[in-house]
Design a binder for these strands. Sequence first.
DNA 1: GATGAATTGTTGTCGCGGCAAGCGAAGCTA
DNA 2: TAGCTTCGCTTGCCGCGACAACAATTCATC
Lengths: 162, 162
Amino acid sequence: MAASGSPTWLDGGEATAWRRFIAVVELLPGILDAQLRRDAGLTHFDYIVLTTLSEATDHTLRMSRLARETNATLPRLSHVASRLEKRGLVERVASDDDRRATDITLTETGWAKVVATAPGHVDTVRANVIDLLDPEDIADLDRLMAKILVRLDPDHRMAGRG
Amino acid sequence: MAASGSPTWLDGGEATAWRRFIAVVELLPGILDAQLRRDAGLTHFDYIVLTTLSEATDHTLRMSRLARETNATLPRLSHVASRLEKRGLVERVASDDDRRATDITLTETGWAKVVATAPGHVDTVRANVIDLLDPEDIADLDRLMAKILVRLDPDHRMAGRG
DNA sequence: GATGAATTGTTGTCGCGGCAAGCGAAGCTA
DNA sequence: TAGCTTCGCTTGCCGCGACAACAATTCATC
């Protein structure tokens, strides 16, 4: 490291932008977690898992695929799945075609949970981010995050649809 | 909630931008933590604490003030300070003018740690964010994050300098 | 097909952060 | 100065996530 063509420190404009960016990155997860935990007893990651399943065909995905799409390690997803399964929100069954694999499915209860939880979450997202930005800002945000994801997520694991 | 003037869900452009934004918000902290932990045995938050102290006069701040500037709760900062103190990177002394208060100071060792750690961290920041964006992008990023921080950090606690 | 390597998940341990409770100091009221 | 409240910080407990070790299956190569 420390041998790139770029200067070793950030200039004024870069430093300010970085500080603000980091502040948002540190603060936002807490906001999302707090609302979901308070209103639904879910982590933000729990919510992402449930909604990702809700968008899959048959409300089912292979564990490894779900891990990739939610940007989680397999151990993390396994732990989360255990908790959600205990609460009856998902079910896991060994796959037929590959007996190493496990398919995880959203239960009816889990689907109802998603439906009940989504509006409040969306309100939080709007109140803290989306509604603070005008359409041009949204386009800029999309463009910037896409550029950064080229590095952070080179395989487009989180591409999903859209 | 659920009674704002905005629609209850996100339209296509908003949804895509939000997904990408959330992906970055989830992935970036791990990148920063991993590099700092590997190369310096520090959390990103540890690093923020140390650098914030390094920019303060006399390398000293009151705990409550440091907590505000680093966006931490007091318990969190207290835990972190204990660990850093055990490693000899900071010192805590009871304040004179208010004997409830504690002043935390960067030691010589701590200062050396910051100096040794900063270049690698900056390289990581550049490689994963800054150098992927052109000057206009940086300006856009700054503008967008400032807008969001109006909500997330209304008191401008993290304003610092700049 | 037999053996070694790679893939898929689970489990165990540990560290960090949130929250609530606690403690001492300072301020406030009379 | 007595008593109550507020402030500043610390501590303890618990949950989540990372990492490593492990078990089970499948694939690859010969």
